[in-house]
Write a protein that binds this DNA or RNA. Structure first.
Length: 654
DNA sequence: GGGGGAAGGACCA
DNA sequence: TTCCTGGTCCTTCCCCC
């Protein structure tokens, strides 16, 4: 930016993934593609957001450069010693005894569509729509059209482009046909997607006394005969290299890298780092602009700087890439860690529309979870604003949930705290699954009594091992075993009234689950919760009188005693302080303060209430310094860019 | 200081 | 006029013990 050449060609500074060479795109006029992508994008909110992200990366690069400049000769020789030691250790772990084959179906979705509709053959075609393309055939790739490109840009690059909608049933069917072939060569093959797999063919080569080249050829022929589709394969001593190799002779080709260190080092030396799985656009730019690293050989030559600038895990990963090392064993079966559903729509701030979308997504997620017998404890709401800024807000519950009603109830509360906002995407993700998929109750969940007594929920034989629900107006003493133990202060209860899960999924249950959800990050003030969930309040129930001296609680009493509501959703009815709805923590602390104040009046012991007040005062002071926790990030604030984010996982490979 | 939750980001197909 | 979906893993920040 800023140079005359860039002024003439502003698109050159707009880096997108679309100019990265993909199979079948070798002859593409990259500058033309870059210019058209730039011209179609510029001025849009997406473009502005990309620019913002680019600016962050530039700052990161500048910061790393400054760190390099500060290194003395002594520092460099120190880090060189560390790098040398690591290289020796990594080299000692090199395993050349395995033969891995990576197979990748050629333009899979597009090939399936062409197989079923031969009239598409020879014509530029893309699977997807005007908003986004899933994949493009090789005829379209000649124009620069590729996966992950918006369809309207693809249309500009290739006006005759034919669009075919995605049909996952078809792709799954053909994928299964291919997998039948894979199983014959490796029953434990690793499937990474519908069209890709890793096969350990070591045994096949030994038992049948044939070369890996012959196995690859045989496998490709078998796949073609049984599916009518072509694939490309790569053979190498580890998974990382096999994946790189399968891309070399695409489409319908294969590349064999011998299990020989010298051959590997020769192969890797000129390999662009971007070809390595785990090195994407950002890492490529950072390594190139900070250290001038472009090939894997460059990595080894910059070992000292990599050790100086990056975490141990990251530098280990980089060095292992430079040595051509990768995983050589079949990983253990991985359990799913999360399940999610998200929808993009035209940006809007219409709250009715947004809550309806949220309900639709909650239903989809709930259905998916039921289908897979999953029940989760952590719900994450993902929002993409009209300006493409992505926000996530998570809530961890005391028990696992899966029903639409429970999901929607939690999600609505988080969303409400974020509004008003113009959004273009809403997503919900559930994680922290219960081990026992048939149980929808978290065994770790403590009953309120166990919580109050500081004991384990399961340790008391007299306590019901189920969630205790209170009706509005109930006193805790009305329930078996629900009394406060001696010395137990009421403030020990961080009350978070939630919609009860009665395990039947009934809507509009007028009871509240009185759970001690102290870990709930978005637990709200009592008043707020009541306000937000007022549809669950049953006003027909008569209030129950409460003796002031009794150490008992009723839900209504808390509200009455504290008397705190947020007038106009903004002003504290007790003291008049103004706190916006999205100041969740502050509001919670604020209601804590008033609660403590109330308790202070009625309890003979003042200690804990005083502590709560102190806590509030400290917190307010803290917040006034502008260190509010991750609620909003100023646009001009330098954000952390976790360049190393991807690398630790490779550590175990080496 | 360590553990764990939350938030954000990079990357992949 | 228009830039997806679903998943994993990692780091940093922050709070709590």
């Amino acid at each position: 930016m800023g140079t005359s050449s860039e002024g003439d060609r502003p698109w050159q500074s707009y880096n997108t993934v679309y100019t990265n060479a993909k199979a079948g795109m070798d002859g593409v006029d990259k500058e033309k593609v870059q210019r058209i992508v730039y011209e179609m994008s510029k001025g849009s909110k997406y473009f502005e957001n990309e620019k913002r992200k680019e600016a962050f990366i530039k700052l990161k690069i500048e910061s790393l450069r400054a760190q390099v400049d500060k290194l003395t000769d002594k520092d460099v020789s120190h880090f060189q010693m560390i790098a040398n030691k690591k290289i020796l250790e990594l080299e000692a772990s090199r395993d050349l005894s395995k033969v891995w084959l990576h197979t990748d179906m050629d333009a899979f979705y597009a090939a399936v569509e062409t197989l079923e509709n031969p009239s598409l053959r020879g014509k530029p075609m893309a699977v997807g729509g005007l908003s986004m393309i899933s994949t493009a055939n090789y005829e379209a790739r000649k124009f620069g059209v590729r996966a992950a490109m918006p369809g309207f840009i693809a249309c500009k690059l290739c006006p005759d482009l034919i669009f075919v909608p995605t049909n996952f049933e078809k792709y799954t069917f053909y994928s299964e046909l291919a997998r039948k072939v894979f199983r014959r060569y490796d029953p434990d093959f690793i499937s990474t997607s519908l069209d890709e797999a890793y096969l350990n063919i070591t045994e096949v080569c030994i038992n049948r006394e044939i070369s890996s080249d012959e196995v690859a050829c045989e496998l490709r022929n078998a796949i073609f005969e049984e599916t009518g589709l072509t694939c490309s394969t790569g053979v190498a001593p580890n998974l990382m290299l096999a994946k790189v190799c399968s891309d070399i002779n695409k489409p319908n080709g294969q590349f064999i890298l011998p299990n020989d260190r010298k051959a590997i080092m020769t192969f890797i030396s000129s390999l662009p780092i971007r070809k390595i799985g785990g090195i994407g656009k950002v890492t490529e730019n950072v390594l190139r602009d900070v250290l001038g690293i472009q090939t894997c050989e460059d990595i080894l030559q910059n070992g000292a700087f990599l050790c100086a600038l990056f975490s141990s895990c990251s530098s280990d990963f980089f060095l292992s890439v430079g040595l051509g090392l990768g995983r050589t064993d079949t990983p253990d079966i991985k359990m799913r860690k999360s399940i999610s559903s998200e929808r993009t729509f035209r940006a809007t701030s219409d709250e009715n529309f947004l809550f309806q979308k949220l309900a639709d997504i909650a239903e989809t997620l709930s259905n998916d979870m039921k289908e897979k017998c999953l029940s989760g404890r952590t719900l994450t709401l993902k929002l993409k604003t009209a300006s493409f800024e992505v926000r996530t807000r998570a809530i961890s519950l005391q028990k696992c949930i899966h029903s639409k009603e429970d999901i929607l109830s939690c999600a609505s509360r988080i969303l409400k705290a974020e509004l008003p906002l113009s959004l273009r995407l809403i997503g919900l993700r559930m994680s922290q699954f219960s081990d026992d998929k048939n149980s929808h109750v978290d065994p770790m969940q403590k009953s309120i009594v166990a919580f109050l007594s500081g004991g384990d929920a399961n340790s008391s034989p007299t306590l019901p091992k189920k969630q205790v629900c209170l009706e509005v107006g109930d006193k805790l003493e009305d329930h078996d075993g629900l009394d406060f133990s001696e010395g137990q202060s009421k403030q020990d209860v961080e009350l978070d009234f939630r919609v009860a899960d009665d395990h039947t999924g009934d809507k509009n249950d007028d009871r509240f689950s009185l759970l001690c959800d102290s870990h709930c990050s978005v637990s709200r003030s009592i008043a707020e919760n009541f306000k937000m969930n007022d549809s669950y309040l049953d006003e027909s129930k008569p209030n129950k009188s409460v003796e002031p001296d009794e150490l008992t609680y009723s839900v209504e009493r808390l509200i009455e005693e504290v008397g705190l509501i947020w007038v106009d959703d903004y002003i504290c009815s007790v003291c008049g302080i103004e706190l916006p709805p999205n100041f969740i923590e502050e509001r919670r602390e604020h209601s804590d303060y008033h609660l403590a104040e109330m308790l202070q009046k009625e309890e003979s012991s003042r200690g804990r209430a005083h502590l709560a007040q102190e806590r509030f005062v400290r917190k307010v002071g803290h917040n006034r310094e502008g260190t509010r926790k991750k609620q909003k990030c100023p646009p001009n604030e330098v954000k952390h860019i976790p360049i190393e984010a991807f690398f630790t996982k490779y550590k175990k490979n080496s």
